[in-house]
Simulated scan of single mutants.
Amino acid sequence: MTQTDIQENNANKIKAQDKINIIRAKYIASAVKKAQYPEERLKEIAFIGRSNVGKSSLINSLTRVHNLARVSGQPGKTQTINFYELTARFNETGKDKLFHLVDLPGYGYAKTAQTNRKQWAKFIEEYFLHSEHLQFVCQLIDIRHEPMKSDKEMFDWLIKNNIPVLIIATKADKISRGAVNKQIAQIRKSLGVKEIDILPYSSPKKQGRAELLNVIYEMLVD
């Protein structure tokens, strides 16, 4: 799936809930090196973002499994690559298809030891560059704030390495509806890519869930 595919799929506004539903989700493995990745290789979608951006809440919202990804009040707690096996049911045919959701450690937490940050960066980079099954990356950015230096660096690195990325603006319920478009425009300007599609998401209200499921559907049938 290319960067253009992601943008077109999200822009189409097809009702994802009419095509696909996540009926099962379970934890599979944690890894810090390739040898620890799951033996059964499936298509993968990876999620990454700054610590405390709401990544675990989004994963739980997407899968509708309470505490599948542990929500912690301690930023930077996720220190491994966590693999989850999700079962997607195609509503039109009733057929199921498995894929992996990959939860990556948060970046940009100042109190994390420098040695740990270097170690995490190494195995995250290894995953991004050498996973043969990675389809695209969901990079989460807090909609309430302008992207920070670490957000920009991660986005630029993904684009430089030709890794398709979908920007998800989390915590959309924390601002007014009128402010959403303004903040999205600011994120787009800060990242320096005028045409990039950005998906606002609210985990408590499930806003953006249908659109994200639609992108996943198109990935699975590709």
Rank of each mutant, 00 (worst) to 15 (best):
K206M: 13
K160R: 14
I196W: 09
D151S: 10
K160H: 14
N91I: 14
M148S: 13
C138F: 06
A121N: 15
D173S: 05
G178V: 08
K152V: 15
V137Y: 03
G94K: 11
A179C: 02
E126W: 07
M148W: 01
A179S: 13
A179Q: 14
I124G: 02
T115L: 09
V165I: 11
F99Q: 01
V165Q: 06
L191M: 11
D96V: 03
V180K: 11
D103Y: 03
A121M: 11
K118V: 14
I184C: 06
Q119G: 11
I196E: 04
F128A: 07
Q139K: 04
K152W: 01
F155Q: 08
Q207M: 14
A113L: 14
P200V: 10
P164A: 13
N91V: 08
S131F: 01
L158V: 08
I175E: 05
K118N: 14
A110R: 05
K160M: 07
I184L: 14
K205F: 04
Q114A: 11
P147E: 12
H130I: 00
L101S: 01
Q207K: 10
V165A: 05
Y109H: 09
G106L: 06
W157M: 13
I163E: 07
C138H: 05
S176P: 00
E132K: 12
Q207A: 12
F136S: 10
T93R: 00
I175K: 02
F99W: 11
R89D: 05
G94S: 09
I163S: 05
P200N: 14
Y109P: 00
V165M: 04
D103H: 05
F128N: 07
P164T: 12
E125A: 13
G208L: 05
V137N: 04
D151W: 11
L134R: 03
I141C: 02
L98N: 10
L101I: 03
Q139F: 03
D173R: 02
S131R: 01
I175R: 00
E125T: 15
V193T: 14
T93F: 05
E125D: 15
K118W: 02
L199A: 07
V165F: 04
R144E: 10
P164V: 12
R188D: 02
F155K: 04
L166N: 03
T170L: 08
K171S: 06
Y201Q: 07
I143H: 04
Y107H: 08
I184E: 01
K111S: 13
E92R: 11
K194F: 10
K182Q: 15
K205W: 07
K152H: 10
I198D: 03
V137C: 03
W157T: 00
E195F: 05
H133G: 06
I159N: 09
E146A: 12
K97E: 13
N181D: 15
A110T: 08
K149W: 01
G108T: 10
S203N: 02
F136I: 05
L104M: 12
I124V: 15
D96F: 01
I187P: 00
I168R: 04
K111I: 04
Y109I: 03
W157E: 10
H100C: 02
N162S: 15
D156G: 00
Q135T: 06
T170E: 09
A169I: 02
I168P: 01
D103C: 01
V180H: 03
